[in-house]
Design a protein around this nucleic acid. Structure first.
Lengths: 349, 349
DNA sequence: GTGCGCGTCCGAAACGTTTCGGCTAGAGTA
DNA sequence: TACTCTAGCCGAAACGTTTCGGACGCGCAC
């Protein structure tokens, strides 16, 4: 009773198939895996038997024997300081799931437990061979993950570039990403332009800031050191940073925020200071999250091509996983300026 | 040479540890796994050897031998008709990742390839034993996934209830979820209240609509059939539905939208019809997505306790995975009414 | 007729674990 | 002293696959 019951509901094994097909296990395996030295008639027999039994290979056994076989899973380790309602992240994730699916991959999400070295999450995923490669978000300037993964020889792609670093695929914005915003403001007559930057350990923060600075210089303007300030990532940090900036004796007439949430905080700060946007101060954001077009006044911003970013990240990673090249060219996307109501002519002073 | 090289960079195996510890493989395994019949001194020796070699068990081999061992992964299959910028989904996902991490689980995301039966994604994940259980989002009234997973005896939790269905854990809103919104409107003097419902195949859509209807009746008002309309999920579908509703000869003076995006579309529709919100028509949403407080006028809405929902989903699922109970009680959350500017006294007619 | 090559097949070993059953030595008991 | 019991240990088999090395038979060239 027990035995028959077992063999009833147990998954069929390769051996079951081989018996049904009247073949050896060896030959059944070779038939199913498309090896050359099996006669067509035999192969058909094996396939038919497999199908009729509903056979599916045991992944564990197969991967035990063939360590190189892929999991077809892409890993993403979110930071433990995740900003829950980061709209850009949420959208990027969903885009990547869809894109990965097209390439035959699925996504594996994790967050390092609070007390654990973040690298441990990567190490565990690698040892257990749960994933074939990683997408590295929130790249830091001195990001230890890169050295670690390169040491392991494990494929990954980064969102954001590291100056001078190479040997792995990267997706990032063009160097001049912030330029359209600066140009718009200068064309509107602004000369005192401030920047609400992000924490500079963040790789993207640095490159955006550099882009801002060189765009300003490109228009033969000075960069006032006082006008560049770390405004964090969030709406409230943008709010306080902006209050500080707009309370300067000689205050800027325009602000470029390196992310939309900060820009939205800036809008509120300006309002609370009794300043009108854009009459008294113009504000530009970065990302074009959903909220950007909903706030009042609606936010002029640089739109990230989220879909394209997600697609490129997955494409590059899959390429790195499946072919083993060692040379990569950076894939660069170009944010597009969306002009709304938060920017206007510079006030006469 | 070859051999030494291999043993150099290959991961240490249990056998290596046993040799280093001067033990049999058997006893090493038992020591490391905390079995009883191993002397303390021996156990220490084994642990020390394992540590010094940097031993980590081969998951494939272990799971081949012990089919019941868990992957510690929770699967979520997104629908292929995913709405990319669904803010609620994005937030729920990040909450669940964090919550799962606390319980020692990670998340596995996939989307069924467009040409494939959606159940196939579930089946594959089960056969390959990639996941230990599923979170079922977007539950349909006649959801085939439930029968399938119950047939497989595979653990899952649903977000949303099925009337009369039982035998699996569920997280949902209380039956009276929409009541606070209706009560608010009735208290403000409204008697002609419309409902912008969602497609009724969606389980949550039905229960929310029922909640709306019984709340109306609970206040001794009639439900005008014309005032209940399928407004879809999106802003534009909410827009057109609202235009239809507000163009009726006897139009409603208040609308309850069963989701915020639809409500936001309704705001726009009212504005385009020359109606003021809330003077001419009051509008209430559902969810309290980020945009709700940003739109003008800001949206009165029922706030979903997203964090709690995510936590309950994961907790219930993990419980279903780890203990094998067969009785579950529904976990119900209570949306909270957030009153903003889109609701006001009923107009005098 | 011998030898060779080729197409087709198979047995057995291996991957790294866990576990079943049995073994030994010493302690406890009568 | 002889028996039983137990704590502690081990060898070998097993999980389901792939693959190495070889075997068989047949046609072909010499």
């Amino acid at each position: 009773m027990r035995v028959s019951e077992l063999s009833e509901n147990k998954r069929p094994t390769l051996r079951d198939v081989s018996i049904a097909a009247g073949l050896s296990v060896t030959q059944t395996s070779r038939a199913l895996n498309g090896h050359a030295d099996v006669a067509q008639a035999t192969r058909d027999r094996a396939l038919a038997a497999a199908k009729s039994l509903g056979y599916a290979p045991n992944l564990q056994a197969r991967r035990l024997k063939m360590p190189e076989v892929r999991a077809h899973v892409i890993g993403i380790v979110l930071s433990s300081t995740i900003r829950f309602s980061d709209p850009f992240l949420g959208e990027l994730l969903t885009v990547m799931v869809a894109e990965a699916s097209q390439a035959g991959y699925e996504l594996h999400l994790s967050i390092p437990p609070p007390d654990e070295n973040p690298l441990a999450s990567y190490e565990r995923a690698i040892r257990q061979r749960r994933v074939d490669g990683f997408v590295l978000l929130r790249l830091m300037l001195d990001d230890e993950r890169i050295g670690f993964l390169q040491g392991e020889g494990f494929p990954f792609v980064t969102y954001g570039r590291l100056p001078g670093s190479t040997g792995f695929p990267t997706v990032d914005e063009v160097d001049e990403s912030v330029k359209p915003a600066v140009d718009l403001l200068v064309d509107l007559g602004h000369t005192r332009i401030g920047c609400l930057a992000e924490p500079l350990r963040q790789a993207k923060a640095t490159s955006r800031l550099n882009s801002f600075l060189s765009a300003i210089r490109g228009r033969d303007l000075e960069v006032n050191d006082e006008f560049v300030i770390d405004a964090g990532f969030r709406e409230d940090s943008g709010y306080t940073a902006t209050k500080a900036l707009l309370s300067l004796a000689e205050r800027p007439t325009a602000l470029v925020a390196l992310n939309d949430l900060v820009a939205i905080g800036a809008l509120r700060a300006a309002a609370d200071l009794g300043l009108n946007v854009p009459e008294d101060v113009s504000i530009v954001g970065f990302d074009d999250i959903d909220a950007a077009r909903r706030v009042t006044p609606s936010l002029t911003t640089l739109r990230q091509p989220t879909t394209e970013i997600g697609r490129l990240l997955i494409q590059e990673l899959v390429m790195a996983i499946e072919r083993d090249t060692t040379t990569y060219q950076d894939r660069l996307v170009e944010p597009r300026l969306i002009v709304r109501q938060s920017t206007g002519r510079a006030p006469q002073i």
